[in-house]
Every structure is written in C-alpha cells, then in structure tokens.
C-alpha cells in the first residue's frame, strides 16, 4: 500500500515536470497548428540564462570557459528574467523561422523543418560557447529551509512516502503557472484574442484582432514558460548539457497529444497521466518504462484521437 502511494506521489512529481514542459509547446500549436521543434532548445536556454544571472560560473570548456557575470541576482528575480530572455529568443525565432513561412502561406510542415534547424543552431551554439559540461544550481536557491530539508516524508516513520522538496516546489509552481495561464486565456482581452485567432485567424482579423500581435505574444509567452520551466527542472536535475531540453521533446509531444493537441488543461492532464503511468510500471518491468508512454499514446490515438480533453479533431496540418 505504501508502495502504491509512493508511486502515486512519484507520478505526480514527474508528471508536473512533463506538464510544464508541454505548456509552451501546446500554446504555439493551439494558435498556429504547428509543432515548434525549437521548444526544447528554448527550455534549455532558460536554464542557462538563469544560471548565469544568479552569478553562476561556466564550468564548461567552450569558448567562454570560466566566464561569469560581474553580478549575481537573487534567484526569484533571475528565474523571471531568465524566462523573459528565453521569451525574447522565442520571439526572435518567430520572426526568423516562422513568420516568413506564414507570410508566404507555405506548407505548415516546413515550419517543422525551419524550427528543427533553429533548434540545431541553438544547441550547437551553446555547445560552442559554453561547452558540453554539466552545470548545477547551488542547493540554496529555494532558501534555507528547503536546503536543510531536501526531502520530505509525507507518510509515517514506519511507512515512509518520500518526496524531494524540489519536486514539491515544482508541483506547486506548475499549478500556479497553470492557473495564471487559464486566467490569462479566459479572462483577459489578449487571452480572448488568442482564442479567436486559434479558432479562425481570418475571422479574428476581420473582427479587428491583430493576428501578428497575438502570434508574437503567444511566442513570448511560450518562451517565458519554457524558460521558467527549464530553470525549475534544472534546479532538480542539473543542466546536463546543451541537449538537456531535447530529452523532453519527444515525451512532450506524447503529453500534448494525450491531453488533446492545443488544449492548455489537456497538456497538464496529459503530463500527469504520463507521469502516473510511468510511475505505476511494476518494478520488474521498468526497462519498458519509456515504451509505456508511447504505447499509451498509440492506444489513446486509436480510441480517442482528439485526446483526453480535445473536443474536436483539429486538422491544421
């Protein structure tokens, strides 16, 4: 019984990581109907930005070996600023890799290739400048208490249910992000405009919505979310190198489809479903853990192609 509860807690904690990765991914899909393959790279960049903003030194052997900013910001400021920088990169990507294609009305699949190219550039640029080495955040980024209590016992002494404090924080922050996002989309003018563009760009622009501004804002938001979540995940697992975010790319795809492509709540639900499914794989079969995600994806696609929360089949691609 305690094993089952422990697995549930594990599943929720990794699920929240999948969920926050997928949020920015699904946002761009909902508006443009394209999959942004550079999303993982922006996620990685956010983690690097924050690392340097808090005054971290480059342990890598790239061109900027040993480099360090002359100042160090407090972590809460740095993570938002790091996210904002990632947002700007994302906006830059939109300008360079997506807008020219859209302007020409090109095959949406080409956006997949151009974003793939953009991701390749970012990852290799990071490798060139920073290096392939692992960078880690100091243990005190979440304050003294969290540093003293790196793991929590949610059960009793005889039936321990252990969880890492960092995971609880990520869980909490991702819920906050989700609520803020739902508010933004359902209650603000920009959010309504986003919904309108997602529904039908032509009608939206006839109604006076500036499609370009909405798209720009969507990329900014998606980059911001990617940057912040990249940092959060890195505080838990370290930045394992320039390919850090790409490892989540494939699972991220599974997550957004599980929940329903382009659906914000669906991305979060998909993340938790995947996390739980993986955590509940029996001990003897953990070798097949990665296949479980995709078996689940395949089955869902067969039975309910619109995803768990999707209302209709989107046929943008």
């Amino acid at each position: 019984m305690d094993l089952l509860l422990q697995s549930l807690v594990n599943g929720l904690s990794i699920g929240s990581v999948y969920a926050i990765f997928a949020l920015g991914y699904t946002l761009v899909f909902s508006i443009l109907g394209i999959i942004n393959f550079a999303h993982g790279a922006v996620f990685t960049l956010g983690a690097y930005f924050t690392y340097f903003l808090i005054g971290g030194q480059n342990n890598g052997t790239g061109l900027l070996a040993g480099a360090q900013l002359p100042f160090g910001l407090p972590f809460p400021v740095a993570i938002i600023l790091g996210g904002a920088l990632a947002g700007l990169v994302s906006v830059g990507l939109e300008r360079v890799a997506f807008r020219p294609l859209r302007a020409r009305g090109a095959d949406p699949l080409l956006a997949l290739v151009s974003s793939l190219g953009a991701g390749l550039v970012i990852v290799n640029l990071v490798q060139y400048l920073i290096g392939a080495e692992i960078l880690s955040y100091p243990t005190n980024v979440y304050g003294h208490w969290a540093e003293q209590h790196p793991s929590l016992n949610l059960g009793t002494a005889s039936f321990p249910i252990q969880i890492r404090t960092v995971q609880v924080i990520i869980f909490g922050v991702s819920l906050v992000i989700l609520l803020a996002l739902l508010y933004l989309i359902n209650r603000t003018k920009m959010g309504k405009a986003m919904q309108a563009v997602a529904e039908n760009p032509t009608t939206a622009s006839l109604l006076g919505v500036s499609t370009d501004r909405v798209i720009l804002f969507t990329f900014l938001l998606s980059g911001l979310l990617a940057g912040i979540s990249g940092t959060l995940v890195a505080t838990s697992f370290s930045i394992s190198g320039p390919y850090f975010g790409l490892a989540y790319g494939l699972k991220g795809l599974a997550v957004i489809v599980l929940g329903g492509l382009g659906d914000i709540g669906g991305a979060v639900l998909g993340g938790f479903v995947l996390g739980l499914a993986e955590a509940l794989v029996p001990g003897e079969y953990t070798a097949y853990k990665d296949a479980v995600a995709f078996l689940l994806l395949f089955l869902i696609l067969m039975l309910r192609p619109q995803g768990l929360l999707g209302r209709r089949l989107i046929q943008k691609v």
Binding site: L3, N10, A279, T286, K289
Partner: peptide, 8 residues
C-alpha cells in the same frame, strides 16, 4: 533525469 520509479 527522473529515476523515482526505479528508486522506489
């Protein structure tokens, strides 16, 4: 990166 399933 996450090994909680295997650890448990």
């Amino acid at each position: 990166t996450d090994f909680t399933t295997q650890v448990t």
